[in-house]
């Protein structure tokens, strides 16, 4: 179950303020980087939802995002549907795909789950790569962005698109929290703790896993469609397993199961990538060493570490102020 702590509220506020500031003041490249961060943040929220709260460490979320991007491009470019309909269609199709993957993989655990999802991801990658209908290696271009001129918003403008993505990310965050706090989300956490016990209590475990995986897939599909709109061109590289691997790296670097942490991780990775690649062509080396260091330190990522250092003290102080009841984190209703 997901809980908001004062520290998490502070981190969210800082993230939002930073994003708004960047959206308001940055130039073209700054905006591009911001959009990249926002879309990656959606993907890692989707991944944290299944990995951090359901123990389903997926190596196919990059591919799901790719499915969303390809579905959006196909619905718009080939079937001629409007961007809005294409967007809804892409989200639905990706969600359905993810639901099936989740249902099939529900019996696998640990390393087998990782491998099974990897297999499905690579299956999608190979299929797209080899199908001339999707442009094969060349990818697809000429993708349109959503038309919000009726609301007075021109999404072809980078700044508006960045703000739009920020708004969508906010909604995705709220939706993720709502899912995790629902009966379904609670059951998912129960399944992560003890699948056997949940089954003995009468829960159809595979359905819960598949449902949440499907919901997570919808978010990944949304992120994919936005990414297609952003670059207005897509290629099979989007579905490669290393994209899923990178998303997992971000979740871990940020802090598994904290929602806020992975978003911080997304900022860290994208900024690091851009800053480092300006200095050295070997930025993978730095990210790799960082990853090894974080995992070996046994801290739960950057945010997990901060929570362990500051959070406990902060919560204690707040508890001391309010009432002398120890232990529980304050729960917001």
């Amino acid at each position: 179950m997901f809980r908001h702590t004062p520290l998490r509220y502070i981190a969210l506020a800082l993230l939002a303020a930073g994003a708004l500031f960047q959206a308001a003041t940055a130039g073209y490249f700054g905006l591009e980087i911001l959009i990249e961060i926002l879309i990656l943040a959606m993907l890692v929220l989707a991944l944290d939802m299944v990995a951090g709260f359901g123990g389903m460490v997926s190596l196919c979320h990059g591919a799901l995002m790719g499915v969303g991007a390809y579905a959006f491009a196909t619905f718009g470019g080939i079937l001629g549907l409007t961007p809005l309909v294409s967007l809804v269609g892409a989200i639905a199709l990706t969600g359905a795909t993810a639901w099936v993957i989740g249902a099939v993989c529900a019996r696998s655990h640990g390393i087998y789950f990782i491998m099974a999802t990897l297999a499905f991801g690579q299956m999608a990658y190979s299929y797209v790569f080899q199908t001339p209908f999707f442009g094969g290696d060349d990818g697809m271009g000429g993708i349109e962005r959503l038309d919000l001129t009726a609301l007075g918003i021109d999404l072809t403008d980078s700044r508006s698109f960045a703000l739009f993505c920020l708004g969508v990310l906010g909604l995705v965050y709220l939706a993720t929290v709502a899912v995790l706090r629902s009966g379904l989300g609670r059951s998912l956490t129960g399944v992560m703790h003890s699948e056997q016990r949940m089954r003995a209590l009468g829960l159809t475990v595979w359905r819960v896993k598949a449902d949440v995986f499907g919901l997570s897939g919808m978010i990944a599909g949304l992120a994919g469609a936005l990414s297609a709109m952003h670059i207005m061109y897509i290629s099979p590289g989007l579905l490669d397993w290393t994209v899923s691997g990178e998303a997992l790296v971000v979740v871990i670097l940020g802090g598994l199961g904290t929602l806020v942490g992975p978003m911080i991780g997304a900022v860290a990775l994208v900024v690091l990538k851009h800053e480092l690649s300006a200095i050295t062509p070997y930025w993978h080396l730095v990210v790799g060493l960082l990853l090894i260091g974080v995992v070996m330190s046994r801290a739960n990522g950057i945010f997990g570490w901060i929570e362990a250092q500051i959070g406990a003290r902060l919560d204690k102080r707040l508890n001391d102020i309010t009432r002398p009841q120890p232990t529980e984190e304050p729960r917001d209703a």
Binding site: V249, Y282, L291, V295
Partner: peptide, 24 residues
């Protein structure tokens, strides 16, 4: 003694490191 996920991630990081080391 770490779980499979930690191992997957550490060796994933190692892939990055070895990739760039061979390039260097």
């Amino acid at each position: 003694r770490s779980g499979p996920m930690a191992q997957v991630l550490v060796t994933f990081g190692l892939i990055f490191v070895l990739l760039d080391l061979t390039r260097i």
